[in-house]
Design a protein around this nucleic acid. Sequence first.
DNA 1: TAGCCGGATAAGGCATCGGTTATGTACCCT
DNA 2: AGGGTACATAACCGATGCCTTATCCGGCTA
Lengths: 315, 315
Amino acid sequence: MTLTQLSAFILVARLGSVTAAAKALGVSEPAVSQALSALRHQHDDKLVIRSAGGMTLTPGGSRLLPIASQMVALGAEADAAVRAAQGAAEQLRVAVTDVIAEFVANPLVEAFNKRSGESIEASSGVAASKEMPVLVANRLADVALGPQMPADTAHELSSDPIFRCRLVAVGSPRVRHTGRAAGWPWLAGPAATDPGSETRNVLGKLRVPDSAIQVFPNQTAAWAAAAGGAGVAVAVEHLVASQLQRHELVVVPTPVTPMSICWHATTLTRDRRPAGAASLLHFLATPQAMRMMRSPGAGVPATRFRPPVYVTIWS
Amino acid sequence: MTLTQLSAFILVARLGSVTAAAKALGVSEPAVSQALSALRHQHDDKLVIRSAGGMTLTPGGSRLLPIASQMVALGAEADAAVRAAQGAAEQLRVAVTDVIAEFVANPLVEAFNKRSGESIEASSGVAASKEMPVLVANRLADVALGPQMPADTAHELSSDPIFRCRLVAVGSPRVRHTGRAAGWPWLAGPAATDPGSETRNVLGKLRVPDSAIQVFPNQTAAWAAAAGGAGVAVAVEHLVASQLQRHELVVVPTPVTPMSICWHATTLTRDRRPAGAASLLHFLATPQAMRMMRSPGAGVPATRFRPPVYVTIWS
DNA sequence: TAGCCGGATAAGGCATCGGTTATGTACCCT
DNA sequence: AGGGTACATAACCGATGCCTTATCCGGCTA
């Protein structure tokens, strides 16, 4: 499976014709046909089949197309990325958990970039807690912000505390939540799907069944739904401070909350840590960074906004 | 640049040693050394250099590593995806704008999947409005939900209205917004960075400068900040109904709002439309779907939640 | 300074890729 | 049924990929 073969397949799928694809690629028709044949043999699937109105995708082909597309796109991107890096700023990749991504990652990264001038360019990506040690150990991320990492067997990683806060359960002031917490309807952000997250930890300790958890596309939406009376949500206390103050939400006591937690920054051990990572760790200890972690939901200027990227690993 | 070469590079970067990488791959040391050499020549960058404590990445190499990683991972995924598709459900890819993704895409897709039994498996991805025609025309998405698409020159696409609603500006009831709208602080979700979105359209018509726009990671967060008095936000009226009713937000009049808009579903023209797409269009016209688009922010069960995926195109 | 270790390079062999031209075969359309 | 269009296959060939063994070179250490 080579990139040229995939390109041929993509064009056939997009244009609905082998000959058109060949013309687009500037090669003979059998060249494309053969590339297709190679892919078909390897995957043991026709991928595209003749039908009225051009070649159409088989189920297998329609799965392959987006993947192939991305691979080819990445191939082009690879070239550009390396070229752009010649004499460019050091790049710092920060993996963060879902909650941190939603509330503090963007302003934090933005401030760090501004502070370090043109020399470092940090960017953040969302990752599951369980993946973070792997991401950092394998150099796919330089720093991870999230729960404390278990001491690494090979002593390759170090986890430093950066911010202490409390987890609480919150609900609408107009609804009384009584009885066993496991029986309440629970509302959560994507963090609830991360087995290593503190949110998940709380739900687990309360023995809340999956069927009682409604997951929202982001944490703020879950809290808004809780304010509307739809159920109870796990929240980082200081991040809902304004809703608590305005009495849109109230704290609901449970057997395990309030719970003290501490965000940690995980990196390689000091000797093998890149300069940018060390610099970020230093920044995280400044009053400016503390202030940003404490005050939730500051936006970033339109020109600097980056949509969240989900980081993936390959095992 | 082949996948084997990239794999070799990845392992060298991760393990910090050519020989270790060779051992891991089960080949001789010159094999990986040579693969590395090929990449270095192609990109005209050393990528990894000898240094104390193993091979370390150059700036170029550190840009390449995540891309290479993803390519190799996708290579493995491709195989699995096609195999899994043999005799599996038809896959329907729905591209949606940011606002739709945040509020209605998940419940809608979930309900559609349930309704169509095991035969169709729909999934949604976020895309910029401008990219949607390209995504659909190139078979990278089967259906796009968003603003109306301009009539396609080649008459390949058709855009059908599915839901009519109103855009308003909202702010805190405790703050008076007077004077020119362009002077107010504006709070927005990622939609503000999509040049083709209705939100962007409103901000443009009001001549709000970029510097006056704070972008939040999601729309709900922007509204929460507006409720806190930080500024004014563009909102789809029925999606903030509950906040309006609870008087956390009030409508702020502007010269261009309230503005009537209409969400559209864009697909290939009927004759070349896949069966699943036709089925979804039909579903979108049902009262059940209408209800879901009208009532904002329903969560989905934990087991069915999918984090948002940003769809990209390759030109 | 000699020796060693780890990476780079050289040279050679086999397989595959990626292209060509020529030919076969399925399907649509009078 | 016949012709035309479009995809698949065959046969061939040069370039490259990918692996081997052998050798070279640059740093570190005894």
